[in-house]
Amino acid sequence: MAEMAIFYDASKCTACKGCQVACKQWKQLPSPLTADEFEFTKSYQSPLEVSPNTWIIMTFDEVDQEIGVEWNFMRRACFHCSDAACEQACPVGAISKKDNGAVVIDQEKCIGCQYCTNACPFDIPKWEEADNKTFKCWLCQDRLANARLPGCVTTCPTGALTFGERTEMVAAAKTALDDVKARGFDKAELYGVDELEGMHVLFLAHRGLEAHGLVRDPKVPDMIEFWQLLKPLGGVAFAAAVGGLGLSYLSGIGYKREEPDEPEEVEK
């Protein structure tokens, strides 16, 4: 199966949040029903962060300018990295990379240990107490299996979200980059083409990565890589110990104790 990808073009996005709603609707993810659940922050961004029940949000970076506000939007959800820290950290193999590039949590296997939530360089997977499970976008695997587009892509009214084979999406992203640069957005950059060995969500940040809140040069945290190294090293250490002790045992076969030293006279 070919690797697939979503391409998000921030220059076309109006932050209507249709994608947020479509995701919730398709997955039937509940919204809080209590009043004032979210803190008022004067921003249009709502909710402020992804959660076990909100797998995608539109982030709003609202910059005051001399005339009006400069709006920088970004789609915040799982990036479906090829070098996925969450997958490496999962101790029970509940997180896997699919042939189409999606990084998916198998809820039947998730034990809620939260290793993935601490491993992800983007802080995307979120743990839910009620189910003791961790949740994140799964690139609508059920829809893709039935030849349908991901929910968020289906609903995008401006064409800011498109979906297709990754190679085609990379080509489209490069064309779009040239286009926005020609329109005067000198700081425009692509994100996700090479980062973390290639993501399966690509971004065109027409005002530059930082303006859209993207982490430049993301990496699997060093400590996660060292930690993963311990697994084979531990195996080698235990095998060496067992081997060494086994050799020691063999060398002791037929051992007879030397005569003990003459006991010193014991006072009675």
Partner: peptide, 13 residues
């Protein structure tokens, strides 16, 4: 998260 990652490493090591 960085403290927790260090703890995972220390625990297994």
């Amino acid at each position: 998260a960085s403290l927790m990652r260090f703890m995972y490493f220390m625990h297994d090591g």
